[in-house]
Computed example of a mutant assay.
Amino acid sequence: MEVPNPNPSNHPSNYKTKKKKNQSPEGKFRRDLDLCSKHKDLSTAISLYDSALSHHIRLIHHHFNALLYICSETLSDHSAKISAYEFGFRVFDHMLASGIKPTEATVTAVARLSAAKGDGDAAFELVKSMEKYGEKPRLRSYGPALMCYCANSEAEKAYELEEHMVAAGVGAEEPEVAALLKVSAETGRREKVYEYLHKMRERVRGVSEATAEIIEGWFGGAVAAEVGVLDWDEDGVREAILRNGGGWHGMGWMGEGNWLVKRVNVGEDGGCVCCGERLVCVDIDRAETEIFAQSVASLALEREVQANFRDFQDWLDKHIEYEAIVDGANIGLYQQNFAEGGFSICQSSLML
């Protein structure tokens, strides 16, 4: 049987109401703003902001970032788009005037607002400004300006932005490479199409439907049919393929004429069901091999006696005719990790 509460004022619902009534204006503002952020409610956020200013509530970094986040997330709503970027820039100007340093998230949100206005230059300048704030741009920071440039067919500006990305140590992923590939194809930049196709090859295991359509559009177009040379050095091409790990030669387009574009399947044995060619295993290229070798050497110098390892390196330099070095100790211990296992001289002898 339920026992009546002798003190109704201690009922939980009354306590919550009392707690809300005793909440400070700053606390209530933050709570209401967080709710707006959760529901992406721009109109209420604007009202809260104006009310906070009229009541002289001091805005902190969290408030500004929440407001800018709401603005950037509202851009997809066409009816609220203009209000979003007008209010967003007002908030950002207030933030800077208050002496609050923007973070990477802050700048990225404002860059989205600039790109929504079609101003890729402003979005790019915002990314460049991160350095003076002590912030490092991320891939999402570059995205708004890059997509804006590509949508406006401003290929050269898109290439400049990508160079800035590379210098900052930021690598593009499929959406960014696809956008660069598309603007290159649309503006007839055949050398850039070639470049971004191979960047796609290096970074993406399987392309999306949208990317596949961009690639098909290029090879089915008139410009692609005019690209290439008829005479080339076959030995030079083979050497370049070997140098690049067997995946590609990197010497540009070979041959001219219309491309035959088809979507095909590859069998379990690696063979193409259309042309009959078999996929090949691609190794790392020489540049990657050198980086790997340097990493192994650095690790060895940390763990082994440095003089001994350097002597081994000198020996290798003097015996370049050897293509492989067999580690006898590892051969002798191969598959010996059982109770009676140990160094097997027999296994080592078999390698002689």
Rank of each mutant, 00 (worst) to 15 (best):
T44I: 00
I57C: 04
H94A: 15
F92H: 15
L48A: 02
I57S: 02
E73A: 13
S47C: 00
F92E: 13
D77L: 10
L59E: 04
S98W: 05
A97S: 14
D77P: 00
N65Q: 08
S54K: 08
K40H: 01
Y49A: 03
I57Y: 08
S79M: 07
S83Y: 08
Y49C: 02
A45T: 04
E73L: 10
A66G: 02
A84F: 07
H78Y: 09
S47Q: 05
S51D: 11
F64I: 07
K81I: 06
L67Q: 08
I60Q: 10
M95K: 14
E86W: 03
T74W: 03
L67R: 04
G99Q: 08
L96T: 15
S98D: 12
S47E: 05
D77H: 11
A66I: 03
K81V: 09
S76K: 11
D41Q: 01
D41A: 03
S43L: 04
D50A: 03
R90N: 14
H55W: 01
R90K: 14
H61L: 09
A52T: 04
A66M: 05
S76F: 05
I70Y: 07
F64P: 04
L42Y: 02
S43R: 06
L53Q: 12
S83T: 13
A80N: 10
Y69A: 07
A97K: 15
L53E: 11
S47N: 03
H62R: 08
L53S: 07
F87C: 13
M95N: 12
H62P: 00
I82T: 15
L42E: 04
K81Q: 15
H78I: 11
F89S: 09
L42K: 01
L42V: 01
D93M: 09
V91P: 02
V91F: 02
C71I: 03
D93A: 15
S79L: 07
A80V: 02
A66D: 08
L67G: 10
S79Q: 10
E73P: 00
I82Q: 15
L48G: 06
H56Q: 10
L42I: 01
